[in-house]
Design a protein around this nucleic acid. Structure first.
Length: 282
DNA sequence: TGCCAGGATGATG
DNA sequence: CATCATCATGGC
């Protein structure tokens, strides 16, 4: 099998990426791993990451990043969207197992994003026992209230230092419920250095989990989501009670060997597959 | 109205 | 180690 390399070409102010395999923008941004993207049309989204606003769309031509230089695509968005990873080979490998093949074929093109660690941690703290539309609203209000304005109504995700200086009452407009106090605890620990997110890069998954779960409201699931979606640790498999039952039922001996060190990717496909119609939660 | 949402926590079988 | 009530809020 020949892997077709993607090519990024700047035309005017925009950059067009053609030749992408196994990439579906709608599925990737809509599957619940990121909460800062708004669908603006067919295959078109507007969102903010790393303090940069972006209009992006996918069509038969490829992936179009508006007002984005190729250099910025290469240095920021390529990595963010996981386009520096060979998912064609990865998905082909996952497909060696029947169950995983079903899951991959059901919604091909989902990629694991590499978001900002701090934003990822906060997002999944806020997502606990919550639904995606509501989490999106809370995160949006959080950015509008405390993030740096980027123009055109866009706001960066607020720094930990900014949130750490707030009184609990200041978070009431977010309507985050009891999760607000968890958010403040994370901000205090991140701002004081008690939680050093940059240091996590150099730690083992096990040690990183211990650091993250020292934050109130951060358990195994939120820690693993942070490591998978915020640090690109594709081997980490976030599971809740429901997903654990699904996995025990399908793979009592663990994920098949073809998943290799990308169990998190396999889990993402399984989750999306089982959650879609026909495989409701018990 | 009642139920649910990619949970964590603390207590209890 | 599995299960359970509780937490606060909005959408359906």
């Amino acid at each position: 099998m020949v892997t077709i390399p993607a090519t990024a070409v700047q035309t005017g102010a925009d950059t067009l990426v053609a030749g992408l395999e196994c990439f579906n923008l709608d599925l990737t941004l809509g599957c619940g791993q990121a909460f800062r993207w708004q669908k603006t049309g067919v295959g078109a989204w507007h969102g903010v990451a790393f303090g940069l606003a972006l209009d992006i769309s996918q069509s038969g031509e490829g992936l179009l990043l508006k007002n984005t230089a190729e250099a910025q695509y290469e240095s920021v968005w390529k990595r963010y969207f996981g386009l520096d990873t060979d998912y064609a080979a990865l998905c082909a490998r996952l497909g060696r197992d029947g169950g995983l093949r079903q899951a991959v074929e059901a919604s091909p093109g989902i990629r694991i994003l590499r978001q900002e660690p701090w934003e990822t941690l906060c997002s999944f703290i806020l997502s606990q026992n919550n639904n995606i539309p509501r989490v999106t609203g809370i995160v949006r209000r959080l950015c509008e209230c405390f993030g740096e304005p980027l123009g055109h109504g866009d706001f960066a995700f607020p720094a930990a230092e900014r949130l750490a200086a707030l009184e609990p009452e200041a978070l009431e407009p977010l309507r985050a419920g009891y999760r607000a106090s968890y958010l403040l605890d994370a901000a205090r620990k991140a701002a004081s250095g008690e939680l050093d997110l940059r240091e996590l890069e150099s730690l083992s998954t096990c040690e990183a989990r211990v650091r993250l779960t020292a934050v109130r409201g951060v358990g195994r699931k939120v820690a693993d989501c942070t490591l998978l979606y915020g640090f690109g640790r594709l081997e980490v498999v976030p599971v809740d009670v429901w997903m654990r039952r699904v996995l025990r039922e399908m793979y009592p001996a663990g994920l098949p060997a073809c998943a290799g060190d990308c169990g998190g990717v396999a889990q993402q496909y399984l989750f999306h597959w089982r959650r879609s119609a026909g495989h409701p939660r018990p």
